[in-house]
Amino acid sequence: MKRTDETETILEISGLKKYFPLREGFFSRSSRFVRAVDGISFSLARKETMALVGESGCGKSTTAKLVLRLIEPTAGTIRFLGRNVLELGGKELLALRREMQIIFQDTFASLNPRKRVREILSQPFRNYRMDTGNLEEKVAEILELVGLSPPAIFLDRHPHELSGGQRQRVGIARALALHPTLIVADEAVSALDVSVKAQILDLMKRLQRQFDLSFLFITHDLAVVRSLADQVAVMYLGLIVERGPVRRVFSNPLHPYTQALLSATPVPNPRLARQKKRMLLKGDVPSPVDPPKGCRFHTRCPFVMSRCREEEPELKEKGDGLVVACFLHE
């Protein structure tokens, strides 16, 4: 694996789909599916951070698990470091897994309640039979790196003896232990207090610079996106509706759904907040079991046209790496 090219693409996803079968009866074969992810494509460069945003149930977390091949996709390809992740097995997959790790939202569920910090963090080293000359030292080093110092007081604790922020730091340490290329952060800061969240975000930024990491950041928190990400992809009902550089998307969102999302975030300055136009969406997200025909957003879109109910818009290039799927911007 070469690490020379600065803008080398490390992750390339195309047409990724995941349908979960619905079980309806004991003997009946399921004929209906939850279309959690319904054909998404994007790519990520080294040292870059891509944020995947959207409401609950839009398929963000499923995408995270698909990228790491923790669940098998229904269709599509995932290329990571030039290799097709879905075709690999055994040793090759194991070797590639070392390069991509994951951090979760639920800090409690992400650590085995019956293991001590020491055991949790020595596992990656053991598993890859890295020169375990001084395992203890390595674990201590990595604890220090994520700001849990002195390491000695944390080594023998169980997860329930740590605070939420500390648990998340352990989770980050575990992901970082093998020096991966890509870290997928699935709502990694959503469950934390505001102050702790800021610390963890700072930590992640620092580690990104230090280790040339790429992040795939799954979140619903647009403030987090603004502070951390280079690229943003907005998902709605299993599809990406708008994708592009954060600055471009946030300053001038094109898709009505992106506009609605952005108008829903609070603005710190009260004077600006009063001037701001709110765009409220009616209704709920339709069921991903049978998504609306045509544009999936047409049931809630304030600018809906008759064409939107019939045809499905495709992602169109709008310059500066921005793509949007909306007939308003044909």
Binding site: L68, L70, L94, R97, I102, S110, N112, N127
Partner: peptide
């Protein structure tokens, strides 16, 4: 489906390792 088991799988632990060291003790 718990996250720590997913993390173990992402780390490349084999199925029997996940069964014995991650899930069984719980």
């Amino acid at each position: 489906e718990r996250e720590f088991v997913l993390a173990a799988r992402a780390m490349g632990l084999k199925n029997w390792e996940i069964i014995f060291t991650e899930i069984l003790p719980n």
